[in-house]
Design a binder for these strands. Structure first.
Lengths: 121, 121, 121, 121
DNA sequence: GTGGTCTAGACCACT
DNA sequence: GTGGTCTAGACCACG
């Protein structure tokens, strides 16, 4: 796998997002063991410490749990996983309307535009 | 006016965005003189150097022009202004679909969701 | 019995504490034979090596003695048992006053607070 | 200043506790600038990264805020500061009763013992 | 082999 | 000079 990192945002945040997304997409499913920190380090071509920092954030939000000496696992709590996805969807929609609002386009207008978007994009 | 800056992104970029948005919204219209660097500095409670950096970027993309000795003006080129707005709209829509795509929701599904969620958000 | 281990502290220490407490509480009384390492291993759902390590620590502080070929027994030395409990009580009280002291609450004040707070906690 | 670190618990946690306590005690008061990361590093004879880790935790719980390029400051939110102290007191009392309970001493008995503690300790 | 901690040292953006 | 990020490399406890 090959990742090209955006130079504007910290690598650890980008890694966090990639893994988070992989979990949402079910690439790593509930209760499953994640690759070890060292494996991730190779995969992302980053330092193990950087991976740690990324995974720590995911642990904080309850997405993954650490079993000392055996590895890190995706939480078995389905609610956390479902909520994560819903939150993300809600966030995307909110961002969309906010962005449109900032340039003077209200919700109704925004919806109209996006539904007609085939011509625009 | 009171701005609370996001601590993650450079201040000058945030100022740039605010001014850009103000121009799109017509607060500063085509051909109009912009406030002086010093006025902006007071308005944003920022260092004049920071303002300079922000304005320089806007000049670079052709949004504003500097008339030596008299100040900075919004470009008279209507095409630039219109394009700016359209670009932004297209960008917002693209971001929206990209974000949805990342979590496994295709265009049709995304449209369906956003149309259903205008009451929720 | 079901134990949920704290992921922050070594399992063997947690097991040690549980057994130690059980001895203080008289669940295993003076001179009595302890369950075998294997039985403990099943009971705590842990690796026999981990149990060994926990028991070794308890033997070190004189709480239990190993009779080769027959098993491990709670010490017959009543003094050790009594002292263990008194030590623990003293330790708890000392910890309490130390903790209070660290946040600027002296002994008298601490006593006053704890006497007032038996309803709150 | 001279600190002797407990070898059982991570240095960053111990540093975190020291700074937290200093804030509770008002050594660093509301809104005040904290020493720089590098100054702390010298003071605690630790690596700046270790200090960062400690301070990050304090930031997470809202105790301190980071002003990019100028430094880190104790939060101006008095509620957070007051709550911090109250939480700590409650925690200490709770720990005390829990510890006593574990060795078979109930609340009333525990209170009685601690009030009579002069002879015991 | 697993995660956790720590150090030394470097570079960066921002003011 | 401030905080933030990242790396390389080391050592440790645990099971």
């Amino acid at each position: 796998m090959n990742f090209s990192f955006d130079n504007q945002t910290p690598i650890y945040m980008q890694i966090m997002e990639v893994i988070k997304t992989d979990i949402i997409l079910g690439k790593y499913s509930s209760g499953q063991k994640l690759p070890s920190v060292r494996e991730f380090a190779v995969q992302f071509n980053a330092n193990p410490n950087t991976i740690q920092k990324a995974l720590f954030e995911l642990e904080w939000i309850g997405l993954i749990v650490t079993e000392r000496t055996s590895g890190k696992y995706v939480t078995k709590d389905q609610n956390v996983l479902l909520k994560l996805r819903d939150d993300k969807v809600a966030k995307i929609i909110e961002d969309f309307f906010n962005s449109m609002d900032k340039i003077g386009i209200d919700k109704d207008k925004a919806l109209q535009i996006i539904n007609d978007n085939k011509e625009i994009v």
